[in-house]
Design a protein around this nucleic acid. Structure first.
Length: 690
DNA sequence: TGCTTTATAGTTTTT
DNA sequence: CTATAAAGCA
């Protein structure tokens, strides 16, 4: 996110000379400059919240280029596409386009796809492997569980999935011990074997198989070590063991590995992130240069003092002390509420009030919470006051049925062994291949350890079918074959082939028929058409193949922004999703024992991570921060009593003031009055074009 | 096939 | 309470 944009003058647009003369270090502070200038050997940059991390990374890449490093030999790895994109945009402002373009800036996963598409055959997969997303893998695991579990055995698909994911993230096979260990282990083994017969990989496999490739095939490892001479890893505190291993294996003897991260912001331990990667960095990369970035360009000292005091209570961490050249700022308010209704009412009416009295914009405010369910009450109250808002997170563009169907069709063309996709579309629209045929084919595929498509081709299988079914099946497989050939004809425009193929399937007509309203049908159809056009653009502009495009789609999160509320309004967001963002005014709600820290964290012994979560929340605020807790909260329909979070006791008296909402609501302006005034003002504003 | 009823469980989430 | 998934029904 935009770190310190208000303070920093824009950097000069181009590097004047590859030599040091003329190269300005963009007004970096001494620590930042040291991080940028340290180009050789391992480097650990401990970048506290709001200390200009992204700036340092991009400046360092620019510096490397100015030093004469070939841009193509620089690799910067991030966690999200968004971060990679942002970094690329920032770099584009520091160096010439022809220097920026060859730099590799990608996520771990995208990088691994690149490696695997070249050499995965060395591991017994085919190079046209499919990538399965969360939904695909959950479905697969579910099926395997029902097939494997005895009647008295129970195993939740999500539990199994997380066990499998963690096992893979740690390198390989050991499934964490537990009561269902044997079943989970069996499911794991079957799952992995089935993925392979389908020539498919999941997200974890992307990392795992790349790791295998690099460690077991020296030639491949050396190829990539030669390619990348300077490595940078962002958000290093979020890496798991496998990702650390990948970095280790990509680095050659020179060990030019620069990692950037903040152990205090490690909040993804529950999904396999290893804080020890950053805490014990020296063990993995001996004698590193260590740089601490502690000057914060985001928040007031009241906010930073509060954050510092809180996080000091964590035992395993690298000591850091954020400070700011800004004023002390307003004290952090800790406000006790009677219940969650009052909490929401207080926050929303105060936002309404401050919009008037302080002239603050709605998008300056954010409400942060531990659980998504907490947003509801706030939403209701915001709607009542006609305050625009956006809820971050939510459903993805790619969750839409029609998009999944389209991607499945495309995937089957490229890899017919992809059962998950094949089964998705085999009878959509209905083409006479009913559930019984599909079931028998699936059974045979399990028995013969082949893909469903291969099972469908089996002569014996076909002769066992009714004449009608056999004909329908032959028509379908022939159809796929024909279009596969067309797609792979050299010089053919794949987007056009795909469009014609989808047309021929009759999918769109079927889609529209299944919709209740015509309007909905058109919208859905439009999505499909749009996506094909999107591919067409990529094919023409960037020369992407359908496979490239599918890879991009599978590895992209891209939450769908609500079209009307895009860009404006109060932000409602979970603490996890808020990492990396900043807002002038933050309300952090639900600071109750059991919610933050969450009850489950106590059982799991991860209260430290909950503290970091609160720390992340606090450090999102630029100017003002309010923390609230409730004496009662509606849980599962009925109000449950609650007490203030134990974290509140850890906050420093110097920077914090304690209040209670009943006084505040009654004292200056009654909430109703504010509502009325604001409503009138708003009506006025709405008649004025903005 | 597609719909309504019933049971069940209930952090955090990117790739 | 409410979202979701499986089961039951037309």
């Amino acid at each position: 996110m935009a770190i310190n944009s208000s303070l920093a003058p824009r950097a000069p647009p181009a590097i004047l000379s590859p030599l040091m003369s003329g190269f300005r270090l963009f007004d970096l502070n001494p620590e930042q400059e040291r991080a940028v200038r340290t180009t050789e050997g391992p480097l650990l940059i401990l970048a506290g919240a709001g200390t200009g991390k992204t700036r340092v990374i991009t400046a360092r890449v620019a510096f490397l280029i100015a030093q004469g490093v070939d841009p193509a030999q620089i690799l910067a790895v991030t966690f999200t596409n968004k971060a990679a994109k942002e970094m690329r945009e920032r770099l584009a402002k520091l160096v010439a386009p022809e220097q920026a373009k060859p730099v590799t800036m990608s996520t771990f996963h995208a990088l691994c796809v690149r490696v695997l598409r070249q050499d995965i055959d060395k591991l017994g997969y085919k190079r046209n492997f499919s990538i399965y997303d969360e939904g695909d893998t959950t479905g697969l695991i579910k099926k395997i569980i029902t097939r494997t579990a005895a009647k008295d055995e129970k195993l939740e698909a999500n539990v199994a999935k997380s066990l499998i994911s963690k096992a893979k993230g740690n390198g390989w096979s050991e499934v964490t011990p537990g009561d269902e260990q044997s079943l989970a282990a069996a499911v794991f083994a079957k799952y992995q074997q089935e993925l392979k017969t389908m020539n498919a990989v999941d997200f974890d496999d992307l990392l795992l198989l790349t790791y295998k490739l690099l460690t077991e095939h020296a030639a491949v490892r050396e190829k990539w070590q030669r390619k990348f001479r300077y490595l940078m890893v962002d958000e290093f505190q979020d890496t798991n063991r496998l990702q650390l291993e990948l970095v280790t294996n990509l680095a050659d003897a020179r060990q030019n590995v620069a990692v950037v991260g903040d152990d205090d912001q490690s909040i993804y331990g529950w999904r396999g992130a290893e804080v020890s990667n950053i805490l014990e960095f020296e063990a993995h990369f001996p004698n590193p240069t260590v740089v601490k970035l502690e000057q914060n360009y985001r928040s007031t000292n009241a906010i930073l003092g509060t954050a510092n005091a809180l996080i000091k209570n964590n035992p395993r961490r690298r000591p850091k002390q954020l400070w700011s050249a800004h004023e002390g700022g307003a004290k952090v308010r800790v406000i006790g509420m009677s219940d969650d209704r009052q909490e929401a009412d207080f926050i929303t009416s105060e936002i309404a009030q401050r919009a008037v009295t302080e002239g603050a914009k709605h998008e300056d405010f954010a409400v942060l919470f531990r659980m998504n369910a907490q947003s509801r009450m706030v939403e209701t109250h915001l709607r009542e006051l006609h305050i625009p808002y956006r809820v971050v997170g939510g459903s993805s563009f790619f969750d839409a049925r029609e998009i999944k169907d389209l991607l499945a069709y495309a995937s089957v063309l490229l890899n017919a062994d992809d059962d998950v996709s094949l089964l998705r579309i085999i009878n959509t629209p209905a083409r006479g291949i009913g559930p019984s045929v599909v079931e028998r084919a699936t059974e045979l595929s399990v028995h013969k350890r082949c893909s469903v498509f291969a099972a469908l081709q089996d002569g014996e299988f076909r002769s066992g079918l009714s004449k009608r079914a056999a004909e329908a099946l032959a028509a379908f497989t022939g159809f796929l074959d024909a279009w596969e050939t067309k797609l792979n004809t050299p010089l053919s425009k794949q987007a056009e082939v795909l469009r014609a193929f989808i047309g021929e399937t009759g999918y769109l007509a079927d889609l529209k028929r299944s919709c209740k309203t015509q309007d909905e049908g058109l919208k859905r159809e439009n999505k499909v058409v749009e996506m094909i056009r999107w591919f067409e653009d990529d094919e023409e502009a960037k020369g992407k193949s359908l496979r490239d495009f599918l890879d991009d789609m599978m590895l992209r999160e891209e939450k769908e922004e609500d079209e009307e509320s895009k860009g404006s309004g109060v932000t409602l967001i979970t603490l996890h999703a808020a990492k990396g963002l900043e807002f002038p005014h933050v309300y952090l709600i639900g600071l109750e024992e059991g919610l933050l820290p969450h009850d489950r964290s106590k059982m799991e012994g991860t209260v430290d991570e909950e503290r970091r979560l609160l720390y992340v929340g606090i450090t999102r605020a630029r100017q003002t921060l309010a923390l609230t807790w409730c004496g009662h909260r509606i849980k599962y329909g009925s109000p449950m009593p609650g007490t203030a979070s134990s974290f509140i006791k850890e906050l420093p008296a110097e920077w914090v003031e304690h209040k209670n909402a009943t006084q505040m609501l009654n004292a200056p302006v009654a909430a109703e009055t504010v509502k009325g005034k604001f409503g009138a003002l708003r009506a006025l504003l709405e008649n004025t074009p903005s």
